[in-house]
């Protein structure tokens, strides 16, 4: 079980990244599936060639951020739809990842009979993997990043990023360069995803070109589950919820397999169904009201769509004459119902 929690905490970094794009920017970013591998592959190849594991991990984070930059540029400069821009980056990165790693995988356990020095080597040598100590260390890292993200979102720039996703028209009228906030937030998001990949590659002892496939679903499921548990009323709880959601997701997976309810290969299907259910709930006012009533946190427990006119306390007042102004339409939500391409041959994340 500790192992499942460790995994949950490592994937929490990825889920935090997904939170930034999906919840804050309202941007369906599928870059994740490849930027995770870019981060993992970059760190792995550097470590394999003798680089300092911490520097290599940082490099993995930077490589992920670069992937986010590409998606951001495709979307803002070339005006490509978010979903398509991120799919293009994701597909292109597959080839790049193969180049980075110089092959489909890089092993990080032994080299020339010597254990490879990863950030987990001290823990491994002390036989502390899958221990509560290791859980504590990883939890501290995840919580530190949670604090940084909560702080970031409350800064002037963070508020600008939030406004960009919440009401782009207002953001522009407020002098916010939504192109810039999108690019920066995508970079931070994919930087976190790359970091998650870098840590995970060292955790499992290898990087594999397919290690990121389907992870957007894992990230979304973590965000949705976590926000359902801790609510979205307070930003700190919403962000913390993402970490909690990631751990809960791993534990559910662990026990589903442990009690032989599901096989490891079923998890993609279960994740997809979970995400669909959560999306349906978040789009249906009636279901949301019902879920809010039965939940212990009452208000705003179920993630609501980012543009929710129904949130208004009063019904629309008076007639709203149709106006053909382009500035008028409410910001559209990205369609997130299309899941990432699933690869049935892939086991569940290694």
């Amino acid at each position: 079980m500790q192992n499942a929690i460790e995994q949950g905490l490592i994937f929490a970094l990825l889920a935090l990244g997904v939170f930034l794009t999906y919840r804050i920017l309202n941007f369906a970013d599928l870059t994740v599936d490849s930027s995770f591998t870019t981060g993992g592959g970059t760190a792995a190849i550097l470590i394999y060639n003798g680089a300092d594991p911490y520097l290599a991990t940082a490099a993995g984070c930077a490589a992920g951020a670069l992937a986010g930059l590409i998606t951001g540029l495709l979307h803002t400069k070339l005006r490509i739809d978010p979903l398509l821009a991120s799919i293009l980056t994701m597909l292109a990165l597959y080839s790049v990842n193969l180049r980075i790693m110089g092959g489909p995988n890089v092993g990080l356990n032994l080299r020339d009979g010597q254990p490879v020095e990863t950030i987990f080597l001290p823990l491994k040598q002390a036989k502390l993997m899958a221990s509560w100590q290791a859980v504590g260390i990883l939890a501290a890292v995840a919580l530190a990043l949670t604090v940084v993200i909560v702080w970031f979102l409350a800064t002037n720039f963070g508020l600008a990023a939030q406004a960009t996703g919440d009401n782009p028209q207002m953001a522009v009228a407020g002098g916010i360069s939504t192109d810039f906030t999108k690019i920066v937030t995508l970079m931070i998001s994919n930087g976190l995803v790359g970091l998650s990949g870098a840590v995970y590659a060292q955790f499992q002892g290898f990087a594999d070109v397919g290690m990121g496939i389907g992870l957007i679903l894992v990230g979304l499921a973590s965000v949705i589950v976590g926000n359902a548990i801790l609510g979205t009323r307070y930003m700190a709880l919403a962000v913390l919820g993402v970490v909690v959601g990631s751990v809960v997701y791993r534990l559910v997976l662990y026990y589903a397999i442990y009690w032989e309810i599901a096989a490891a290969g079923d998890m993609r299907l279960i994740s997809a169904v979970l995400v669909v259910i959560a999306l349906v709930i978040s789009q249906s006012e009636r279901l949301r009201g019902w879920a809010a009533r039965i939940s212990p946190f009452r208000s705003a427990t179920i993630p609501e769509p980012l543009t929710a006119p129904e949130l208004r306390a009063e019904p629309a007042e008076g007639p709203t004459p149709a106006d053909p102004t382009p500035a008028d339409p409410a910001p559209a939500r990205p369609a997130l119902v299309r899941p990432a391409p699933a690869d049935p041959d892939q086991g569940e994340e290694g």
């Binding site: 970031f152 800064t155 002037n156 720039f157 508020l159 600008a160 939030q162 406004a163 919440d166 009401n167 028209q169 207002m170 953001a171 009228a173 407020g174 002098g175 916010i176 980012l306 543009t307 929710a308 006119p309 949130l311 208004r312 500035a327 008028d328 409410a330």
Partner: peptide, 27 residues
């Protein structure tokens, strides 16, 4: 609905208005 960000608080919306046209940093 157009002039404010619905998921931000009143004070956060005011903050965005206050920094209108200025560089927004990490303060």
């Amino acid at each position: 609905q157009a002039g404010t960000a619905p998921h931000l608080t009143i004070e956060q919306n005011m903050s965005i208005a206050l920094t209108r046209g200025r560089r927004r940093g990490l303060g």
